[in-house]
Design a protein around this nucleic acid. Sequence first.
RNA 1: GCCGCUAUCUUCUAAUUGGUUAGGAAACCGGGCUUUCAAUCCGGCAAUACGGGUUCGAUCCCCGUUGGCGGCACCA
Length: 473
Amino acid sequence: MISKKLAGVRTRIAPSPTGWLHIGTARAALFNYLFARRHGGSFVVRIEDTDLERSDKKFEADILEGLSWLGIEWDEGPIVDTRNYKGDYGPYRQTERLDSYEHYLNKLLEQGRVFYCAHTAQELEIEHRAQMETKQALRHICAHRDASNTEGIIRFKNTASGCITFTDCIRGAISFNTELLGDFSLAKNIRAPLYNFAVVIDDKEMAITHVLRGEDHIPNTPKQILIQDALAFERPLYAHLPLILGPDRSKLSKRHGETSLNAYRHEGYLGQALVNFIALLGWNPDDEREIFSLDELEKEFSLEKVQKSGAVFNKEKLQWLNGEYIRRMDRETLAANLYPFLQESFGNIPQDILHRVAKIEQPRLKTFADVQALPFLFKDPSYEKELLLWKGIQEPVEAATHLRAIEKILCDIKDFEKTLMPYAEQHGKGNVLWPLRVALSGQAASPGPFEIMYVIGKEATLRRVRNAIALLK
RNA sequence: GCCGCUAUCUUCUAAUUGGUUAGGAAACCGGGCUUUCAAUCCGGCAAUACGGGUUCGAUCCCCGUUGGCGGCACCA
């Protein structure tokens, strides 16, 4: 089942398929992947689908596709026949590992380290409220911990006292008073593990050496350590990553807008640009470079340069970065990426037109979807007559005169700029070129007239110029 | 409420083991180039949360305060 074994570092990403791949999960995956690669180790994906109610295969597919799109590949897992993601392996799934959890749960039961708690939700609620009122830590120290119930949920018999300290690779020593944890839950039943328990078993059996995860997991760590100690498991190294925040500095969530990674793909962002951007959210190189390929990141990533505090997701900077990537693309690739967006808005377009659009728009685009805002490249525009007048104060007669001159001298597109410019310089470039550009685009801001003509051709140009002349009458 | 993490421009961040005019990037503003919008080039704005220490000297080390965030499920 495990097909490739590499020595040394082993990391993992453990998403639960209860929602679309979140930006934060993607970044945690990236950091785990980079760390493993940097040290010649392995990176695995484990789908934490123990919550049967909320888990959904469509979310699992979205997560795997999203990781592949970013170029993040995992090094091992079950071999699969059909798959909708790159790579040779499927992910591990917790629902396929229930025997393991049962095994260790039984072991703990025999040792008397865990017990069945028969308290009802209502009883727990009352206890909770009483603790609130008396300003106590919220925890459940179960009266059933020494009873021999065989019903109810399985809890850890937390008899530890004093502090547990672990060394976080990013933050240093972190201590917790174990008594404040209470008898925390491990499983709904012998074959239905809960998060904290399943994680410990899986990380052990998958031989995970470094757990890099969001800092929202810091409070889970002492519980997991307690379980590890009870089972005599070796403790992995922990590194808690800073959270990605929304503009209000709270954990990035739906109410801040789009948090799903694949939404960015559909908005016309490049996987490489996203990787570059999220890598820089909480990590930085030694120097002032901003542009990094995945390969470069693999060589340079280090936990020492990871930030301690959260980072606001800054969409403007992502757009800038995406624009930089677009500017560096070869024309062929850009055209291929543009096509689906153009097709969606304007239907099928010929290859030569596609390439011309790519050529003129390359310096301007921030995302591929930006081409959808250029309808005049595909159909004659309509606009207010006044827009044709240079600076709004040009006489309609003058604009019309220049457009008629243009109509007369209009020739092959490739010679047209050379032919027209002497005339434009003679009469004032704005006086001539502004009405022309508006006649072609119908917009106050657009690519230049020669660029538009390069795409729409001589015939459409002539037609639009004549339309403008008619409008000015 | 309890526990924990955290603190440099609006945002992402840099500043060898304490000595810098506190640097870069995005955004924003101004200018060059330009028919417009971009792209590009040049310039500008803008920060060490507060209070104590330690020190000849603290962004940096220590303590406290305040703020921000996270966790406290039969979710993960």
